[in-house]
Design a binder for these strands. Structure first.
Length: 654
DNA sequence: TTAGGGTTAG
């Protein structure tokens, strides 16, 4: 085994700087207690109990009005019934009764009221109950922090936590998970301060000795995972004296989501050794399947599929959705479709996974057909459905269809286009050569275009050699992402194609001056359930001589048939032979050669690459597929290329 | 009385 691929990091969730909203939670001096004062529990009214459980809220309320002395427990039951049946009018009626019966200052019932209003999406009512209750127990504080976090009011949840600290409320192990989640909830766009708040909370947790508490520590693992800080997450995980399936799954998920799929699979083996084979559950499985999908590890994915069947996890929708995605990303679209068709219950995620699968495999029309089938089945599409189907159109140049879907998204489904949708449209029009229209989309955007939108335009400029527009897009990109080397490389490629060597040099110097380096190309292949990875200069590979010899032989054969190596991606001033040597050593070519040598005759070779496939590799792989009569499936950073008989499924449109 | 990990896109 030659080592695992070094994958680029996925974008980290950004944080947003927020100003403290400074809500005042006290209209009077607070009374702070740490436990409920209710120890006496009178019995429940059996009729009300029965009716509440059956959901006959109206009749239960009728009996309540006739009950001379309703107990705290009776109210607790009624509030639970209102929550379960999601009935706000009944909830308000019970609340009114409760006040009339003198329970309005009962902190136990106040906590239940906050939980109920939170679940019924009445945050204002929850706030009001909190403010009016004088005896503010820790349950009451925690309930409001939770309600605010669940409602996405992260900044306010953090402000409430800070208020707790300020006035000396002793936070407990239930407070921290909520407030840590608030740090992530409150950062849908970007800000670094939310992360710092979480770090400060971690310090507080350490000071109070809660880091070893399993729920708190697991939330910390997840918190660091969401900010891409895998080593921090691992440190917390390793420090846990007690680990359970949730903590293991959180750490496995952390690796899977942060481009460390090999570690996710390794940790799974550690988990099995430490806790036994019965332990992994559906959430563990989802993380592992994501790891296999990231690696395109079809063999290992199949093993996990069999494992899921054995453990009865295959009836859980999230697991099946993850299986569909795993097969899609491992290049086995037929297996994905078979699983999708056999699903007893499909949710929106299942449909999205399959639509997106058709898209990245270059089956745009099938993606649209499945989208229409989804509409016919009455499944409500979401923002991701449209990103998936628009992407599918973009991969094959279905411009009119894409425009129609974009319009239908807004008009029929009232989905306001996000930057991702605009980026899809820019990509769709730009790839198809309608660069002015693509630029117009950006001008007309009602939201600020982000780097994804500009890089879609820059990518399209590269395909169509539009230097002027590329320069305009680059100016914005360099402002927004000054440290993204990929943007500089893309612009240098465009100049190189236009033979504007001075400008190539200028961009290269800019790259160097900023201390940035081009992300090295890396390709990998799974052979007999092991992953073998390659970088362009791979002297460590024991078969390297053999791989080079085979590639040289194939290259000679190709040249005899008129092949001229395309070396424009080499941005250094070297003689043509040296450039040819570099291009021939590209990681995907090495991986293809390795596949030819080490795979069985007639077996499809499956390669994955961390960057976009270069034109020369595309040409050479087409030739190899014909010359060796081998099917070669390459997944690059954007899509699949299926090479067979000298033709690629992308029809050279990518 | 309250608490932790999850599927789809880019």
């Amino acid at each position: 085994m030659l080592g695992f691929p070094a994958l680029p990091l996925t974008p980290k969730p950004h944080c947003r700087i927020f100003t403290n909203t400074c809500h005042s939670y006290h209209n009077q001096t607070p009374t702070i207690t740490c436990s409920s004062s209710s120890s006496f529990k009178p019995t429940k009214n059996p009729q009300i109990q029965h009716l509440s459980k059956q959901g006959h809220l109206k009749q239960a309320l009728h009996f309540l009005s006739q009950e001379p002395n309703p107990s705290q427990q009776t109210y607790e039951l009624l509030l639970l019934a209102c929550t379960n049946h999601r009935s706000l009018p009944h909830a308000a009626a019970v609340h009114k009764h409760l006040i009339d019966d003198g329970f309005d200052q009962d902190p136990f019932l106040a906590t239940k009221l906050i939980n109920m209003y939170s679940q019924l999406d009445c945050l204002d009512e929850a706030r009001r109950v909190f403010q009016k209750t004088q005896e503010k127990t820790i349950f009451l504080w925690n309930a409001l922090v939770r309600a605010l976090t669940l409602a996405g009011e992260g900044a306010e949840a953090i402000a409430l936590y800070q208020e707790m600290i300020r006035i000396g409320v002793a936070c407990d192990r239930f407070t921290y998970p909520h407030v840590l989640k608030a740090c992530v909830v409150s950062s849908p766009s970007s800000s670094i301060s939310v992360f710092h708040v979480g770090k400060a909370i971690h310090t507080h947790i350490l000071r109070r000795g809660f880091e070893t508490q399993v729920h708190v520590a697991t939330t910390l693992v997840d918190f660091y995972s969401k900010f891409g800080l895998v080593s921090y997450a691992r440190r917390v995980f390793d420090g846990m004296p007690e680990k359970n399936v949730v903590s293991w799954s959180a750490m496995i998920g952390c690796y899977a989501k942060n481009s460390r799929p090999c570690e996710a699979l390794e940790l799974f083996h550690e988990m099995i050794e430490e806790v036994g084979d019965d332990y992994p559950n559906s959430v563990t499985m989802v993380g592992l399947l994501q790891a296999c999908a990231a690696l395109s590890a079809l063999g290992q994915g199949k093993v996990l599929h069999a494992y899921s069947l054995r453990k009865g996890l295959d009836s859980i929708v999230s697991v099946v959705n993850a299986l569909v995605t795993m097969y899609v990303k491992c290049g086995s679209l037929e297996a994905a479709r078979q699983i999708f068709d056999q699903m007893c219950r499909k949710d929106v995620v299942s449909w999205n996974a399959m639509i997106s699968g058709y898209g990245i495999h270059g089956f745009g029309r099938e993606a649209i057909r499945l989208f229409e089938e989804m509409m016919g089945a009455g499944v409500e599409p979401n923002v991701i459905t449209f990103v998936s189907v628009l992407e599918a159109c973009s991969h094959v140049g279905l411009v009119e269809e894409g425009k129609g879907l974009f319009e239908c998204m807004v008009r029929k489904y009232r989905i306001f286009p996000s930057v991702e949708h605009y980026a899809c449209m820019v990509d769709l029009l730009g790839r198809a050569g309608q660069l002015d229209e693509a630029a117009k989309i950006i001008e007309m955007m009602r939201i600020e275009p982000d780097p994804i939108v500009w890089s879609s335009l820059l990518g399209a400029c590269r395909i169509h050699g539009n230097v002027e527009l590329a320069e305009r897009a680059s100016i914005r990109l360099f402002e927004l992402e000054p440290l993204n080397a990929g943007n500089y490389v893309l612009l240098a490629d465009i100049y190189s194609e236009a033979r504007m060597w001075d400008d190539v040099d200028r961009v290269k110097k800019l790259l160097e001056a900023r201390g940035l380096r081009k992300v090295p190309g890396c390709s990998w292949i799974e052979v007999k359930k092991k992953i073998y990875s390659f970088v362009s200069v791979d002297e460590l590979n024991p078969q390297i001589e053999q791989l080079h010899a085979l590639l040289l032989q194939l290259s000679t054969e190709m040249k005899d048939r008129g092949y001229v190596p395309d070396t424009k991606v080499v941005l250094y001033e070297l003689d043509e032979n040296e450039k040819e040597r570099i291009v021939l050593g590209h990681s995907e070519k090495l991986a293809v050669a390795f596949g030819l040598i080490n795979s069985k005759n007639g077996e499809t070779i499956r390669i994955t690459k961390n960057l976009r496939l270069c034109e020369d590799c595309h040409t050479v792989t087409k030739f190899i597929s014909k010359f060796t009569n081998t099917e070669i499936l390459v997944r690059d950073v954007n899509r699949f290329h299926h090479f067979k008989d000298g033709v690629c499924s992308c029809a050279d449109y990518w």
